[in-house]
Design a protein around this nucleic acid. Sequence first.
DNA 1: TCATTTTAGTTACAATTGAAACCACCCGCA
DNA 2: TGCGGGTGGTTTCAATTGTAACTAAAATGA
Lengths: 151, 151
Amino acid sequence: MPGHALLELESFLPYRLSVLSNTLSQAIARVYEKRFDLSVTEWRTMAVLGYRTDISAREVAERTAMDKVAISRAVARLMKKGLIERNTSRHDKRQSMLRLSDEGWKIYDQVVPLAIDHEKRLLSHLDVEEREWLARILDTLWKAELDEAMR
Amino acid sequence: MPGHALLELESFLPYRLSVLSNTLSQAIARVYEKRFDLSVTEWRTMAVLGYRTDISAREVAERTAMDKVAISRAVARLMKKGLIERNTSRHDKRQSMLRLSDEGWKIYDQVVPLAIDHEKRLLSHLDVEEREWLARILDTLWKAELDEAMR
DNA sequence: TCATTTTAGTTACAATTGAAACCACCCGCA
DNA sequence: TGCGGGTGGTTTCAATTGTAACTAAAATGA
């Protein structure tokens, strides 16, 4: 292939990040999908509500970087399963305040340790220095890219 | 919320990787989707064929970490657009040998610089030392996780 | 050799997703 | 007070995707 541009996928950063992160997410997702019948969107919604209670769907969307349609559907399913509760906000009748129900908290409390374990297992491949670098680097990229993405 | 497990999504590694990598992929994807009418799967297929020519769909699937149905569909679309060519292998009539067509190469040669630019722009937020650490760390995680994922 | 199992790739169908339209409500302002 | 534009959230419809079943061709092995 003479005279052609060359791109080696395996060493291309965005590609590697994508494959790695998908493999990772799927690995955890499989666990709570089978065990608790939760989709990724549903779990993320619950995760947000686990440490920010009584927030609106819009705010969930912001914090999870998912779009509002996805959240709307996740919320609907979680309501049907009785894992969250919704009260329309008194100040703005368009918004609803979401929170985990008792049932929701029960599941949340089971999934969180699994998630944390998973992260630990992942980090166990790295030494302390590597972990620090990784955290810092992700931080930098996160800020730079996300700012840019939002124009 | 007393007595409950705590998970801070924003500092949870798998989550951060996922959001970051999605933002990233979408940023490039938007460009070649609009400009060349290529889906992510299609582009990845082409990318592989750009530096490994005359390989089978199975091999493309392996190298892109996508599943065979996705590849089959991408290949069908790329064929229809005339961007790749397919010849059934003489040794094994189940397999087909795939390669970029002249048209395909033309597009490939336009997209590659865009992708590389994108990576450069991304890396520009990091200094040399950080880049080296990142590469090493991804390498480690890549090997550890992917091995594990394949059992 | 020929029956069994495995593999490459496609197809069919259901489930998931995304884009755009939509509804109800809020806000600013005349 | 009421109009125009914007926002939170849902719905609809079409496109994309995943799962499983399927076809055809190898490979295995008695």
